[in-house]
Structures are given as C-alpha cells and as structure tokens.
Design a protein around this nucleic acid. Structure first.
Lengths: 234, 234
DNA sequence: AAGTGGTCTAGACCACCGT
DNA sequence: CGGTGGTCTAGACCACTTC
C-alpha cells in the first residue's frame, strides 16, 4: 500500500493521460478533490504539487487548476526519467547488446561514481532501437557493489525495471549534461549515419534515494529522431 | 514583503552558493531551521521542497538534508530559466541586435502563441555572446498585447529583467524542446562555424503565471560552448 | 461579492537511519 | 535505541479572479 497522496497522483495522472479532462481543460477544484478522495486539503495540495512539478497542470490563484497541454508524443521527457519504455509506451523498443563486461574503476571513473579506485564496475554498450530505427548508442557503467548481478538477458530488456522491481532499490535523482557534438565513426556506423553528423549527447549520473551513485552513462542519440521535452516552472 | 518560505529559500540558496555548508555537505536539521527562522515545520518543509526541486539538496529519511554537488559552473541550468545573466554571473554577456520589427501572426504562429491570426508580434533576432565568443542565435517572438513596448535598448540588455522588473509581469512556466541539428549557412556565419556543423537547438514557449503565452523562441546554440545541466528528481 | 488558490500554524503518528 | 524525515489532519486567514 502506498501513501494517499501518491495514489491520488497516480489516479489523476491516469485520468489526464486518458483525456478525461480534455474538454474543460481543467481539473476539479481543490474542494471537490477533497470531497472525492476524503482527505485533508494539505494532502490534496501535495498531490497537485506533484502534478505541477511533472508539468501536467498549473494552478492560478482565484481561478482553478488548468491542464498544460504540451503534446507529449514523440518526445523524450526530461521529467519522467524511467527509460524509453515509459517515454514511448506505444512503440517497439529493442536493445542490441554490443558489449558486457566487468572492469575496475580507474581514477577518473572512481571520481565520477564516488567509489574507490579498483571497484568492480559493469560496463555495457547497447544499441537501442525505437520502431526498428536506431535511436541511440548507450555506454553504461554500473557499480557492482550496488547492482550485484547483470546478464545479457536483463541488458536486453529494461535495466531500470530490473533495479526497481527485482533489486527493490529506489532511484532518487539524476544529473544530466546535455550537448550537441559530431559523431565519431563507430557511433555513426551503429546509428546508420555519417561520421561528423550532429548528435545529441546526454551524460548521466544517477543516484539512489540515499545519495549513492549507481550509474554513470553516456548516451549518443540519433539527431534525426530524438527530441527532448523539458517542462520548466519558475 | 515576500512570503516567509520564499525568504527562507532565498537565504538558504545564498548560503549554499556562498559555500557556507560545503564542509559538512549537509543543511541543519529541520528542527534547527524551525528554531532559526521561527516558523512552523510545514513552512520549513515547503522551503526545503523548493530547494529539492531546484536541485540543490536531497533529503534522506532518518538521516538529514544533504547537498547535491553538481558543479554548476559553465553549464546552462534547465532549472533557473531566467536568462544567461543568471547562468553565467561571472561572465561577460553581450547581445548584438540583428533585427527588430513588428509582424502580424500568421496561422502557424498564432497557433503556437495561442492568439488570433493577425495579432501584432515583436520579432527579434539577436546574436548572443558569452565572454566575447558567439554563443547562440536567438529568434524571438513576443506578443505585443502582453509586452506592449520593446526597443533596441532593451533588446541589448536582458529582456527578462525588463518583463519582470519594469512591466511587473510574473513568468510562470515554459515548454522547451531540445534537439541537435545541422547548422544552416546564416547561423553558421553568425556563430563563426561552418555550414552543417552540429548545433544544439532549443525551442521555447514561455507562459505567464496565468497561462498566457508571451514568448515563442528558437535558440540555435554554438555546440562548442553550450552544455545544459538538468537536475532530475524521481 | 462569491469563488478558488496561497500561506501558515500546531500537533499527531509513522518510517527509516545509524549507533 | 535516539535522531531525523515522511505523512496526514483540521482549521484560520489572506490574495487573486471573475462577474
């Protein structure tokens, strides 16, 4: 059983995605939500705050809770960072494993992963496809002390769902550095593009809830089919 | 006078940026902050929640409030979107105005700006420099019904500070679409790069607190000196 | 003026971290 | 176990929007 406000968030999120409020472009007022879910105002407001943070809605004092209609389709959201499977629920996601090995952290990697030099690290190289088209080349480093087990089978599917559902770890936050660059020849070949073509690169450092680094990765995207969506609040 | 929690956020933010807590890498516990600021726990927790959203800190149940040390230097933050002046406080920011005119919204622009076809729109083209280097070419559309006045003088400095401080408008949120592409010849020349070099493009739609669109813009960045930083929470 | 969000309080009880 | 965050309640009063 989850907490009340999280359940309310899930339910409202599902309603929003199903288009339940598309006509009025508004959510019911706070008082109605309080009545519907039988919770205190604080709890409702906490749930709404989550939806605001996720970019679903915005509130206007004296007026109501309005839906923010940034058509989510075909964009990789920078808010819900739980893997491609979440971003493209209707599309066919595949991964080709190119490399999987255990290495020892050198000084540079140890610093990035906040671990000791020599720590065992899984290194994975994957080519990811969306609807049969090459989408990105991923170079991933996982701390073996945190992720004790990794296999070809897991790497083919979603590593994140393995971490959350099987290892029961909870992911806390991530730093992402985003930039454009020229493609190197290896990545170009994998993405079926030409050397020196543009590419969108994302370098990730991903932390558990307690602040432990468990993943460092570099993802080289096909510029022809990657668009990120960031919903910012001031 | 601002609200209590906003004042607390400002103060803690300044403390964090000044490096006050760099040694312990922790903020004081909630109870101490309550004592210090003489407010209720809810108010302190609201302030901390803001700092968490901005990516400054993370909380661990049973343990404390820890500082998230993602070195902010040389990155354009996707959290504090108040212009380059905020992102690079120590650097020299300049803008060269290339074009400033009033146009009428065509069907496409009207849709993007949620206004009527034919509405007066300021169109600006600016080349922005950071430390004397060409940083980005900006194409900006501003709804003249919202921003009634614009001049060469304002366009040379920060449009955002004009909107906030002089027009007293409050900016609410923004949608940002981010992708890599090949440079066209005009932008390439302005950025002192070659045609077909990579570029990082950001397309913005910016809203006031009440949901009114006041700006649509396309920013074509120099890939050699632009790195974005996104601090995500799960 | 009526409707609806925004801020703030005081306090209860639960859940997780570390020793 | 003590220390520290996490969730939740009930209620007061303020501020903005809309008519």
């Amino acid at each position: 059983m989850s907490t009340k406000y999280k359940q309310i968030v899930s339910e409202l999120e599902a309603d929003l995605l199903s288009g339940k409020y598309n006509e009025v472009k508004k959510l019911p007022r706070e008082e109605d939500l309080i009545e519907k879910y039988q919770v205190s105002r604080t709890t409702i407001r906490k749930a709404i705050a989550m939806l605001v943070n996720k970019g679903y809605v915005y509130q206007v004092q004296g007026s109501g809770i309005f839906i923010r209609e940034a058509s989510l389709q075909d964009y990789v959201s920078l808010e819900n960072l739980k893997g491609l499977t979440r971003d493209f629920p209707d599309k066919k996601i595949e991964s080709k494993l190119i490399n999987l090995m255990v290495i020892n952290a050198d000084e540079d990697l140890a610093k990035q992963m906040k671990c000791d030099v020599g720590t065992d690290i899984y290194f994975l190289e994957r080519l990811r496809y969306v609807n049969e088209e090459p989408f990105a080349v991923e170079y991933t480093y996982l701390n073996k002390n945190v992720i004790p087990y990794m296999s070809e089978e897991i790497a083919h599917r979603s590593i994140y769902s393995f971490i959350i559902n099987d290892l029961k770890l909870s992911i806390g936050f991530a730093d992402k550095i985003i930039y454009a660059d020229k493609l190197d020849s290896e990545s170009a070949q994998l993405l079926q593009l030409s050397e020196n073509d543009p590419t969108l690169v994302i370098e990730n450092t991903v932390f558990l809830t307690n602040g432990t680094v468990f993943e460092v990765s570099k993802v080289i995207h096909n510029y022809k089919n990657t668009k990120l969506l960031k919903l910012a609040n001031f």
